[in-house]
Amino acid sequence: MKTVLEVENLGKHFGGITAVDGVSFQVREGEILGIIGPNGCGKSTLFNCVLGQLQPSQGEVRLDGRVVTGMRPCDLNRLGVSRTFQLLQVFPQLTVRENLILAGQEHQGSMTRRLFGRRDAGLTEAAERMIAFFKLGHLAGEKAGGLSYGQQKLLDAAMAFMAGPRLVLLDEPAGGVNLTMLALLKERLQAINAEQGATFVVIEHNMDFVMSLCTRVLVLAEGRVLAEGTPDEVRANPKVIEAYLGH
């Protein structure tokens, strides 16, 4: 299987704190890779370094073999890599529909064309499809800030999919989402993975969610890779049980 993303010896220090300490892993095309680990072990920081929100202190990130370390998030996004953040990130004053159109608009034409050319060609339809897909139909015209937490979380995920990305990194998509919505979210992610061949990396604390969704799991502890393998292998690994699962 082709490797989409390669992370090599990545590190990040904040003053004296070493948040990520020489992490290496690969993401293969079409897989759903889970990342788990205790609070504060550096999962979110790892995402931020991979995606250009933070400059890594050391190491390299490659996308399809091309070095993209420190590339600006917007440029990386236009190469087909999208993400969600751990804390909810929608645009509260824009409607659900506008949030989604915004998430797709920068992938069309040049900046000049977006001003003077045909506006939002096909984007409104794409947004409607995404709204139907995530079952947000009755909320399309509402301001995103007025939605419930779980609904905003779904919208947040939907925005990450608007531009038809090849690689999606999700930071705790299930956090604070109720069981019904969680089942919906999992089903949607699996559908997008199967139908569009999108590759996923998912940080999550919800073990049932991770173990049933992911094809492979990476375990972090104190900024390092502790273990890596299929969900079953990871669950049976004594080091993982001691550091994370067993408490």
């Binding site: 996004n77 236009r78 645009f91």
Partner: peptide
């Protein structure tokens, strides 16, 4: 226009806007 939408995204959450391809 799409620019207006991008301006508002910049106002409300520049980091998220950037992650959605908006050249902030």
């Amino acid at each position: 226009s799409p620019w207006g939408r991008a301006f508002m995204a910049l106002r409300e959450n520049p980091m998220r806007a950037m992650s959605l391809g908006v050249d902030t």
